[in-house]
Amino acid sequence: MSFFKDKVVVVTGGTEGIGKALVNAFIDAGAKVATCARNYDKLYSLQLQHTNVELHTMTCDLSKEQDCRRFIESTIKTFGGIDILINNAGVSMRALFRDADVEVIKKVMDINFYGAVHCTKYALNSIVERQGTIVGVSSIAGYRGLPGRSGYSASKFALQGWMEALRTELLHTGVNVMWVCPGFTASNIRNAALNKDGNPQGESPMDEGAMMTADEVAQHVVKAIETRKRTLVLTFTGKRTVFMNRFFPSWTDKLVHKFFFKNGELVK
């Protein structure tokens, strides 16, 4: 019998990329799944793909606290509680700090950081009661600030620091707190990344075909939750970047700059 059979799993941002892959993986494992997104049509399409299973969906904007509360409370009402919360929803950005409107950084923080904070706040009592798991989908940008992604990096650093504090607070409750750093993953996040004015850039400057797939990431996350890992850093490039930045930070500055810039222009 699957470890996740009949467990209630909440995945924010479950209509695309890693989020959708996680929804699919947990449904296949026999879990009761709840997910949310801003786009009703994509949620409806997801429901059509999963008929005759226990899937709860709701449209909401995770940058708004009341939407987070409404989603979590409706999930508890529907399924009776929450075993696993995966704070996956997020948005990226691509703009040099000197060019970017500060509101862009605020928007990224509201979704990536405060969205996770609010969802976790309203789900916490149920998760503690069930001795469940809280997951934050972070990024290598949570270990190493990336040029052109200052707001995104800030949100992921904040997420990891907050989750580390939360993990320590909950150390003797039976709750596991884990953050996941996928590295570059083939998904829509770069197409939807905000430009300097806060609008989706609509294209990816990266080679998506060379990246780990969202389904692969999801399988790693599912296994890590089952084994109650503390952290999960994926891909060789991701692990190397974290290692290099910890022990050789000045050298890493130069390597990262070389990767993202060409002739003084941000190209990735």
Rank of each mutant, 00 (worst) to 15 (best):
I86Q: 08
T231V: 10
C181D: 11
F3Q: 11
K121E: 15
I225H: 00
G115F: 01
D207F: 03
K107E: 13
A37C: 07
L46Q: 07
R144Q: 09
A193Q: 04
G145D: 01
K254I: 04
R190D: 05
F79H: 07
V267A: 05
A158C: 01
F261D: 05
R70Y: 02
F243R: 06
K5C: 03
G202E: 06
L194Y: 04
K7H: 07
K42W: 12
L266G: 00
F236V: 13
M206H: 14
L232G: 05
F113I: 04
E129Q: 12
P200L: 05
A25Y: 01
E216A: 07
L234C: 01
M93D: 12
R190G: 00
Y143W: 12
T252L: 08
M211Y: 03
L62Y: 07
T51N: 10
A34W: 01
W251L: 14
V33H: 07
L146Y: 03
A186G: 11
C60Y: 02
N191R: 15
L159W: 03
E129G: 01
M93G: 07
G198K: 00
C119I: 06
G209S: 15
M58H: 08
V23I: 06
V256I: 15
M178K: 02
F243L: 14
D197A: 13
V102W: 14
K7F: 05
K121H: 15
T75H: 07
I86G: 00
S153V: 08
T51I: 13
G81V: 08
A192M: 09
E169I: 03
D215T: 11
G90N: 03
P205G: 09
D28G: 13
R69D: 10
L124Y: 06
M211S: 03
R228C: 11
Y152D: 02
M206Q: 13
S126Q: 06
P200C: 05
E203L: 12
A218T: 01
S155A: 11
G142N: 06
W162A: 10
A100G: 04
T237G: 06
A123E: 09
P205I: 09
D207N: 15
F243E: 04
V242S: 07
K7C: 10
A224D: 03
A123C: 11
G142P: 02
V221F: 00
S250H: 15
L124F: 08
G209D: 12
K7Q: 14
T185Q: 10
T78F: 11
I134V: 12
W162H: 08
L234K: 00
R167N: 08
A154P: 03
N188H: 13
Y143G: 02
A34G: 13
V177A: 01
H118E: 13
T78M: 13
A154W: 02
R230K: 12
V175C: 01
C36H: 03
T241A: 08
K229S: 10
V135E: 02
S74V: 11
F236M: 10
Y152L: 05
D99N: 14
F4A: 13
F248A: 11
D67H: 09
K121P: 10
V222M: 11
F247C: 06
K7E: 09
M212K: 08
R246K: 13
A100H: 02
D197M: 06
T12F: 04
K262D: 13
L255R: 14
G81Y: 08
N245H: 12
C119K: 00
R240S: 14
M93I: 12
K223L: 12
S63N: 08
V10S: 11
L255I: 10
G19T: 07
P249H: 05
G238D: 02
H50R: 09
T35C: 11
V175L: 00
